[in-house]
């Protein structure tokens, strides 16, 4: 393979120009998916984390089983089950619906564990002080505990969000036209690897600033600890 062949196969500007409208649609779809599934995951995680503050065994054990199950189950398997498995039980879910439910269950479990660790990092006295002034449990959690919990685990939350955005690429297996799916389409039509390389570059440009921000946050937290 000569250098020209190599450039033609991976970095062809002509192919990129041709594939760009498809890739652009894919990027928009990926952004839309992220805007849907990240809040869903955080919502699921917040519910799980709040439930984890209940000490009753009838809440604790099912909660632990739930979180373990969805953390151990590969998200790709979960997604395919929701999309292609449930119809056998007469439950037809759209591709977007399957992705939304799958992410709510899977990433919710991860966000939930992070937030739970955050809540546990807040000293007991905070809840006691809040309750002693007449705040209810829910009020104390909302105004006193959660803001501190989120701040304590912010790097982990951002890190997980990074993973979630990357994970939206699995929506390609249920034919949702997100970035990876569109790049694969373009690649098979043009018979050239350039669209895949372009997708990789787009992912990188999208997420690299978040990675930088994360590093800075982690360094600052490390410094604050010393």
């Amino acid at each position: 393979m000569t250098l020209d062949d190599f450039l033609l196969a991976f970095f062809s500007l002509d192919i990129l120009r041709e594939a760009w409208p498809i890739l652009w649609q894919g990027l928009q779809q990926t952004l839309l998916l992220s805007v849907i599934v990240v809040p869903l995951g955080i919502l699921g995680g917040t519910i799980l984390a709040l439930l984890s503050t209940v000490e009753h065994p009838l809440v604790r054990w099912p909660l632990m089983a739930w979180v373990d199950f969805f953390r151990a189950l590969p998200p790709l398997v979960l997604l395919i089950f929701l999309y292609a498995g449930l119809p056998f039980a007469g439950l037809e879910i759209s591709a977007l619906g399957a992705v939304a439910i799958g992410f709510f269950l899977n990433t919710g479990a991860y966000y939930g564990e992070i937030l739970r660790a955050g809540i546990e990092s807040v000293p007991r006295g905070q809840m006691e002080a809040a309750r002693s002034t007449g705040l209810g449990r829910g009020q104390a959690l909302a105004h006193v505990i959660l803001p501190q919990a989120v701040r304590n685990v912010l790097p982990d939350l951002i890190s997980n969000t990074l993973e979630v955005v990357k994970l939206t690429s699995i929506a390609s297996v249920v034919a949702l036209p997100e970035l990876l799916f569109q790049a694969r389409q373009a690649q098979s039509v043009t018979y050239n690897a350039t669209p895949i390389v372009a997708a990789a570059v787009i992912y990188f440009l999208l997420l690299w600033p978040v990675v930088r921000l994360l590093s800075r946050l982690e360094n600052r937290q490390l410094a604050a600890r010393q």
Partner: peptide, 15 residues
């Protein structure tokens, strides 16, 4: 509890 104020050894202010 609004009738009963409490002050703690470790202050427990909201940081």
């Amino acid at each position: 509890r609004q009738r009963i104020g409490m002050v703690f050894q470790s202050f427990n202010l909201y940081p």
